[in-house]
């Protein structure tokens, strides 16, 4: 059935203007360089292929987080969410993790999820930091509302930054929001936010050309730590 564009324009939420996130590169503990860049809507089908195997991993709530990320990215792809963005972490072109979130309004950000596909390298920490950097330094927001769905997330965000507990509901449901303020962010920045810009063109070309993915078994093995079992 052909899309009724008149109705579609009613269903599509209005988008707030969002300046782009400038890509950066981070040297990881194993010496590999991770490029962090903003995904474009056309990247979504490819990203979902990498998220899909994570839907079946119970460990550390990967199933819950992945299912939600899948839905959030699909909603973005099909114009059913307001002002969403997604940042990707890529090593040698391979997707190793992603973060997403959106703008509640011009001054308040809504953090969605952090999904590290390669583990043990603090990829989640780097990507979450990039997300907060985007909200504070490029979107110029006053605060970001955050919830954690796993103990690891709680330790990494609420404790390490540290975030401030509030009674503000978060749109993911569950626990109330914790908030990152500009003051908290800039205090934490020397400890938690790193990266070099600009990213050399050849690295950007590699990241943009084609998002590479490990196969499903490799992804599951990396996340669930089943190597050698």
């Amino acid at each position: 059935m052909a899309m009724d564009m008149e109705l579609e324009m009613v269903l599509r939420p209005p988008q707030l203007p969002m300046p782009p996130y400038p890509p950066k590169m981070v040297t990881l503990a194993n010496g590999k360089v991770m490029v962090i860049r903003q995904a474009v809507r056309e990247d979504v089908p490819a990203i979902l292929k990498s998220v899909h195997p994570c839907l079946f991993i119970e460990r550390d709530y990967y199933d819950v987080v992945s299912a939600r990320v899948y839905g959030e990215l699909l909603a973005w792809y099909r114009y059913r969410v307001k002002s969403e963005y997604c940042l990707l972490g890529q090593v040698d072109g391979y997707l190793v993790g992603l973060v997403n979130g959106r703008l509640e309004n011009e001054k308040v950000g809504m953090s969605y999820h952090t999904l590290a596909i390669d583990r043990g390298l603090r990829i989640g920490s780097h990507l979450f930091a990039a997300k907060m950097e985007y909200h504070m330094e490029y979107l110029n927001q006053d605060q970001v509302l955050v919830v954690a769905e796993s103990p690891i997330g709680f330790r990494r965000w609420m404790v390490e930054y540290p975030l401030i507990e509030t009674r503000i509901p978060h749109e993911l449901g569950g626990g109330d929001s914790w908030v990152l303020t500009r003051e908290t962010y800039f205090n934490a920045k020397p400890r938690l936010v790193v990266g070099d810009r600009p990213v050399p063109q050849e690295l950007m070309d590699e990241a943009m050309l084609d998002i590479k993915f490990a196969d499903d078994d490799t992804i599951r093995e990396r996340i669930a730590g089943l190597k050698g079992r």
């Binding site: 040297t27 503990a29 194993n30 010496g31 590999k32 603090r122 920490s125 930091a129 790193v194």
Partner: peptide
Amino acid sequence: NPYAHVEMALDRGGIFDSPHSVVNNP
């Protein structure tokens, strides 16, 4: 060692020399 918990080689740059090590190796 196939019996090892951690099967990841570290890089001196990533955990010591680079300014990024402040996050990688806090």
